[in-house]
Every structure is written in C-alpha cells, then in structure tokens.
Design a protein around this nucleic acid. Structure first.
Lengths: 340, 340
DNA sequence: CTGAAAGCGCTAACAC
DNA sequence: GTGTTAGCGCTTTCAG
C-alpha cells in the first residue's frame, strides 16, 4: 500500500553509517571522490532502502533542472509531432526530460505555458509554430521570454526570427519560390495558391515566396484563395477554386495537409490531378508520401529541425542572437508532371 | 542581462511589509484567508518584483507536483501523437504539465524514463504502447511501476491489461474480428494478414482477432506474412505476398501505416486495390483518410483514448484495478468494395 | 487573521 | 577523504 514514506538521502546515510554529504557524493559522483569501500556501502544502502533521489530537491539545491519545455501548436499535427520526435531524441541523449505544451494556437495558453515553464525553472524552452502576425501577442511572448532569459533560462524558436531568441529559421519563402520556378520549368503557366489565414506567418511566407518566384518567371501573379491551414481548409479552398472555374493549370497548397484536402476535392469534382491539373504542397509529411498521385512538395527535414533547435538552445550562450537556417528541397512527384 | 537573482517569496514579503507566511497565503489562496488590504499589497509587491513562484520549492514543501508523465513508443507516429494530443488537452484542463517520454520501443529507455518520472515525483504516469510479449521487460516495468505506486504515484496504461495499473483497454481483437466478418459479408473468401513482429501485442491481437473472425465465417484460416509494424514493413510484406502469388482476394494489414505501404506495393506491382484485391487497415489515422482508394479500416477514437487515460489516472484511486474498454468501429471504404 | 519557525530533501562550501 | 552546516524557496503547523 502507499505508505512507507520514500527513503531519503539521510535514511541512506544513516543506514550506511556515513554522513549526509558522503552519501550525496557517493550517489552522484561530484568532483569530490569517496573511498570505494564507503561508496559501496552507500550504494548498497540505497538499493536496500529503494532510494530514489528527489529531483525537486536536487533542483532546488543545485539551482537547475533537467527539463526542457517544448511548445507546439498541435502535437497531433504530423508537422509538429515529427519535430517533437527529433527534439525528444536529442533530449534523451542529453538526459533531459521534455515538457510538452500543446498550445492549440491559443495565445492565452501559450502564455500560460511559458509562465509554467518558468515556474518549473525549465532549463530551456523551444517554441515551435507560434508565428503569428499578431504583434500584441508576439510582444507579450517576447516579454515573457525576456524575463525568462534574464532569470538564466535559454530559449529558441523554430521558424521565424520574430522573437528575441536564437532561432532555427525555416526558409519558407525560398522553398516556395524554388517550387514555383520548378513548376514553371515544367511548363505550367497559370497558378493558384491555396493559402491559410493571413495572420499565420508560415502560410503568408510560403504564399509570398511562391508568388515572387512565379511572377519573376512568368510575369504574372498567381491567384489565391485562403482558408484554414488544414486538410479541410485545403478541401474547401480547392472546391471554391474549382467552382469559380479553374483558370489555373497548377495549384500550390501552402502545406501538405491542405494539398491532400485539395486532392480530395479534385477527386470529388472529377478533376484528375496530374493530368487536368497539377497540385503541389509543402513539408513532405511522411505519412502522406503514399497518396496518389504522389504529391510534389518541398521537403523539410522536420526531425532534424527539432534536434537542431535543442542543440541551439543547449549550446554556448552567445551574446548575439543566432540564426540557423534550414532550407527545403523540392521533391517532384506525379501530381505535377511535365506539361505536354 | 542575466543577473538579478529572481525574486523570491521573502523578497515579496519584505517589499510588502508582511511575513513570509502571509505572502505565501496571499499569493496562492490557501485555506486561510488574508485581509484584502494585505492581499493587495502582496500582489502589488509580487508584480513589482516580477515574482515567479519556484515550482520545485513548492513541490518540495507540498510534497506533490503538477506534472504527469506520458510514455509513448514514438511521438512521430500519428497513432501516438493523436493519443498525446487528447491527453495533452485533458492535462491542460487540469492545469497539469505533460512530460513527454519517447521510448523508441527500447525497454532500457522505458525503464530510464520511468525512473526519471519517479525522481520528478510526477503525479501520474500514462504508458502508451509498451505492450510486448517480452515477459522479462514487462516484469521489470511492473516492478518499477509498483514501487512508484507505493510511493503514492498513480499510473495507467493504454492498450493491454498486462500491467498492475488501471488501463484503457483497446479491443483490438474484437475490432479485427468484426472487420473480418464484414469482409466475408462483402463476399471475400481468401484472406491474408500483413502482421507485425511477434512480440508486439497490438499486432498479434489484431491478427488473432481477424483470424478468429475469418475462421468462424469461412471455415478457413487466413495466410499471413510478418514484417515491421510500419509503412515499410507493410510494403515489404505485401511485395512478398504478391511475389508468392496472391492466393488472397483480400488483405488485412494490422495497422493503417502497414496498409498504406501495402497499397503502394500493389500500385507498383500493377495490382489495382479495390478491384483486383481488397486491402484493409486498422486505426483510421486522420492523415491517411485521403489515400486512394479510400482505406477500409477500424476506427479508434485515439484522442479520446488519451483523454480517458488521463481521467482514469487522475480519478479516485480504487482498490481494484480499473479497466476501461474502448472499441473500434469498422469503416468501409473503396479499398474493399462488395465483391461481385 | 498574522507571524515565527520548523521543516521538505538535497548540495556545496567550509572545516577537519 | 569525510563530516558539519548552511542554505535553496516555499508551505504549514503552532502560537498569538
């Protein structure tokens, strides 16, 4: 039954017949060394008593924890879960525990989590996907982060350098632009973009990058229709596009999820993607690599991005903000065949 | 710059001109009440000093934390990330922080995480996907869990009731069996199962359930080929099946990921799924709902399962182990049309 | 209602 | 090497 007050270090010390300090040193190899004999006695006592160090007490005494926080918009979204996987892997290597904070994209929650992480004296914080054009919120987050940093914490962001912290910058603009160029190279001439909400930075950047590439290559600006940054958003946007009479021969959905929704909408409308119309996405989500037709997209090394972010935030603190750029790679598949 | 030793409660107390005790009571509404006037003074002092409570110190003093641990095999796998999403949502409602532990299916890591969670004095632990037929490891985990429980912790498992804790039992057997029956009802007569490794319980259960249903309905046992419990495993298994000459008119892959791999293998082999051959999966992973042909599967309420697990582990501790059953629902799609 | 004081479990000077 | 002894920051009796 739940009784038996957990054994503490003093219990172990007493049992081993040594001082508290020695027990402490024996159980966690500090710089000081203890005689092997005592060492053993302490270890034996610890096992005998089923001693487990109390991390909270250690954190207090040492003034630092073994915990890093990770803020994501939605862990169920493969984009974030892949990043989280990479980061979790890296954390494990460093013996760190990851606090998963699912913000649901709500500014309020995001701030609450930040505060909680600060209370926990989390060693570091990584923010993924909290890019918004909402300056009020960005400001608020920046403030929280700053006071966290002042307290000796470390933080990094993934995606856009809008926060006063180190960041793994994802080249959304460049990736989308490169994609546009490739599509033009394949013979496409009229594009439409399926984009997300205006206040979502990833979305607007990809849209802008694509538009820029397209404009430079063809002299014309792609049309666009905005909706949610999700599978259903893509479906709706594409449906609307189709209804309005598709002037386009090629559609760029700003992420793979939207692209898949678009694919479904086409199927339902009897439009054959890869023949009647080309469709491309962005991210190269692993589970989506088997859709038909194969989806042309811009591959992002998501797991590496997670790893990188942790490395960045764990690395030597530097005076100036570091930016680590990550570029996507265009992956051509059947959804955008060369145009005959 | 990072200086300014973070303000502590005593700083606040001094600033407000009250005792430590009063400051504590004012800042976190204990049972005791403080005069509104003082209350205000304390609050003001706290904001002025930018005070943030130290959760570790609170944990020590109170003897309990605001943290729950979640063990998953692979957070990048949509199955687990969806569960994690549901659980994270629920945790947020309870004001709890989630420690994400990515075990990678390694027994050793799993045990390390369990120990870490115990050290952290995590309020509760939820284990997802640690089902193995490896009794040695199961035993080890059971022991760790037991001592954690003895220390006043709470724990729950998702999937199979092999651990001495409350569990959200997923009816893999029943779901697969129901699927088999439906397929037979559709006119299929010769089945093959694409299954995972033998020591993976989910996989063996689904296989067994399907086989039982099939046997009862047709009098014959489905063939099977085993490989990894992943997209690539499904691909390889299906390829092998196809090479050996597909005696089957219908293939059941024990999860959607494998099924998608199988779909790809069929495509490459020129076998048209939904016509030449039927294919079904299990889980109903959201991002896979748009593959073509639509994949027949057994839908599991993954997010709810995550929520449920947390509710279970947070609920009134009961003497006997609780089991909360969750059943899947067969979802018929184009990959298994009625057989003409 | 408020304050003084005793811990919570552990680490890190500081002596020996 | 090993032991003593302050704290780390907060909560919670126990008096007043």
């Amino acid at each position: 039954m739940a009784g038996e007050r957990a054994a503490t270090l003093s219990d172990v010390a007493r049992e081993a017949g040594v001082s508290l300090a020695t027990a402490s040193r024996a159980l966690n190899g500090s710089d000081r060394v203890v005689r092997p004999e005592l060492q053993e006695r302490v270890l034996a006592a610890a096992t005998k008593l089923g001693y487990t160090p109390n991390a909270n007490a250690q954190a207090m005494a040492r003034g630092s924890t073994e915990t890093v926080g990770l803020l994501v918009k939605d862990i169920a979204d493969p984009y974030f879960s892949t990043i989280a996987g990479g980061l979790a892997d890296e954390a494990e290597k460093h013996g760190l525990l990851v606090m998963l904070c699912n913000t649901g994209g709500q500014a309020e929650r995001e701030q609450k989590f930040l505060a909680a992480l600060r209370r926990q004296r989390s060693r570091a914080i990584v923010l993924a996907g909290s890019d918004t054009t909402d300056m009020g919120h960005t400001r608020e987050v920046a403030d929280l982060l700053t006071s966290y940093l002042d307290g000796g914490g470390r933080a990094a962001a993934i995606s856009q350098p809008r926060l006063p912290v180190d960041t793994v910058v994802i080249d959304n603009h460049g990736g989308a632009k490169a994609l546009a160029e490739r599509l033009v190279g394949l013979g496409y001439r009229r594009a439409a973009v399926l984009t997300g909400p205006e206040d979502l930075l990833v979305s607007t950047e990809r849209h802008a990058g694509f538009a820029e590439g397209w404009l430079e290559a063809t002299g014309s600006k792609p049309a666009y229709v905005a909706d949610e940054f999700s599978r259903d958003g893509g479906h709706r946007a594409m449906s609307r596009l189709l209804e309005d009479g598709p002037e386009a021969d090629c559609v760029f959905a700003v992420n793979d999820l939207m692209a898949v929704g678009a694919l479904a909408a086409c199927r339902q409308a009897g439009v054959e993607v890869g023949k009647d119309l080309a469709v491309a996405g962005f991210d190269d989500i692993a589970t989506l690599r088997d859709v038909t037709p194969g989806l042309t997209t811009v591959r992002l090394p998501l797991a590496d991005i997670g790893r990188l972010a942790l490395e960045l935030v764990l690395g030597e603190p530097s005076a100036e903000l570091r930016k680590q750029s990550v570029h996507g790679e265009v992956v051509l598949r059947e959804s955008t065949p060369p145009r005959s």
